[in-house]
């Protein structure tokens, strides 16, 4: 069960529209290393975790990723909102416009729609947790790329926040991997 807070995890108030940046950020909505993939990955893998710590970690992080999805959706919306179609054409984001208008659609920046093929969920918790560590680094790298092409502090600040969350999640999955190994193994690993 979930409770909803009617606010974003980090405040987002972008004053200057930037449709090209919107499309770049869109990959973190429905792309391979995006927040939707992250959330579904962790919330699905949760069921085959062998310890309550591991279940709780995946549940909590999977939930937080949904809050990140909301942040990314808000950013894409604010960056695209009310930009005239002719302007979108000039900025070469008109192909996106003629398919979805200015809506937020779960795809990557090239328009490739979201697919569950981006994620895995296996019965083996060690395999899952190693995937999760990789996923956090891939998302962190994506945020580094996005930050490197952004110039508006209203855009950079939330991106920095999201990037740092990937670092924290990496640490938590690393700790979870050790808890799971040490619980599963008959002998202690230390």
């Amino acid at each position: 069960m979930w409770f909803y807070d009617k606010k974003t995890q980090y405040p987002i108030k972008i004053k200057k529209p930037d449709p090209r940046m919107a499309i770049a950020i869109l990959t973190q909505y429905g792309g391979p290393n995006g927040e939707l993939a992250a959330s579904l990955r962790y919330l699905s893998q949760r069921f085959s975790m062998p310890t309550k710590e591991a279940k709780a970690t995946l549940n909590d992080i999977g939930t937080e990723e949904l809050a990140h999805l909301e942040m990314i959706g808000t950013m894409v919306h604010q960056l695209m909102d009310k930009v005239p179609p002719k302007e979108l054409e000039k900025l070469h984001v008109d192909t996106n416009y003629v398919i979805h208008g200015r809506a937020v659609y779960p795809s990557d920046s090239n328009g490739v729609p979201f697919t569950a093929a981006y994620i895995e969920s296996m019965e083996d918790p060690i395999a899952n947790l190693n995937e999760d560590l990789a996923a956090e680094e891939k998302a962190r790298a994506t945020y580094d790329y996005l930050i490197s092409i952004a110039d508006d502090p209203d855009v950079i600040d939330p991106l920095r926040f999201l990037r740092e969350r990937e670092v924290v999640h990496y640490q938590r999955f690393g700790e979870t991997l050790r808890i799971v190994r040490e619980t599963m193994g008959k002998k202690k690993y230390y």
Partner: peptide, 17 residues
């Protein structure tokens, strides 16, 4: 739990607590 395993094994990934 120790921050890092005292006897780490090969072919294992470890993150310190």
């Amino acid at each position: 739990i120790p921050v890092m395993p005292v006897r780490p094994e090969l072919a294992r990934a470890y993150v310190p607590y």
